[in-house]
Simulated assay, not measured.
Amino acid sequence: MESIRAAIEEHWRASESGEIEAEHAIYAEDAILDYPQSGERFRGRTTIAAQRGGHPADRHFTVLRIVGSGDLWVSECIITYDGVPTHSISIMEFAGESVVHETQYFAAPFPAPESRAALAEPS
């Protein structure tokens, strides 16, 4: 379990530093990456790396937390594209030491409604 957590941490570290090969070492050769909000599926480590490597934005990754056990792990991150933060959830399914399926969800921040102001505290 510690080796999987370490692999995930290395994945996000390499993502932040732009090390494409190290970023994608976590994926099985035939891994699948799904983006449900855009309806896209990317099949294979090479294809996953190519679509990320061609991203035109200046990207930065801040990991808020990593939780999981066994074959299922979740990373909560803030990914900043050209200075604009986007919250992201990455659900990684492992077979052995490699990701075989990842699903990523993205959400833009939004202002809190006034009606909850008395109940909420800043996070």
Rank of each mutant, 00 (worst) to 15 (best):
S115T: 14
D34T: 02
F42P: 05
I32T: 05
S90H: 14
E97Q: 09
H24T: 12
E40T: 09
I91Y: 03
G18L: 00
V99P: 01
S115C: 13
A120W: 12
G44S: 05
T47N: 08
R5F: 09
T62D: 10
T103A: 07
Y35P: 07
D30Q: 04
R45T: 08
E40A: 13
P56T: 01
A6C: 10
R5V: 08
E9Q: 05
I78M: 05
A117F: 12
E10M: 06
A117R: 15
A118V: 09
E23I: 05
L119S: 11
T47R: 06
E2D: 13
D71G: 07
S115N: 13
S38V: 06
G68N: 00
Y27T: 03
H101P: 04
F94C: 02
A6S: 11
P113E: 15
M92A: 12
E29H: 08
T80R: 01
I32E: 04
G70V: 02
V99T: 03
S15A: 12
Q37C: 01
I89G: 09
F42D: 08
E10S: 08
A108G: 11
R116Q: 14
A95L: 13
E10K: 06
G39R: 00
R45Q: 06
V63I: 02
A6K: 13
H55Y: 12
R41C: 04
S98N: 15
H24L: 08
Y81N: 04
S15V: 05
E76V: 07
L33D: 08
A117V: 12
F94R: 03
W73C: 00
I8N: 01
D30Y: 04
R52Y: 14
T62W: 07
S69H: 07
S38I: 07
A7F: 07
R52N: 14
H11G: 06
L119P: 07
S115P: 10
V100Y: 00
D58K: 10
G96Q: 01
T103S: 07
E16A: 09
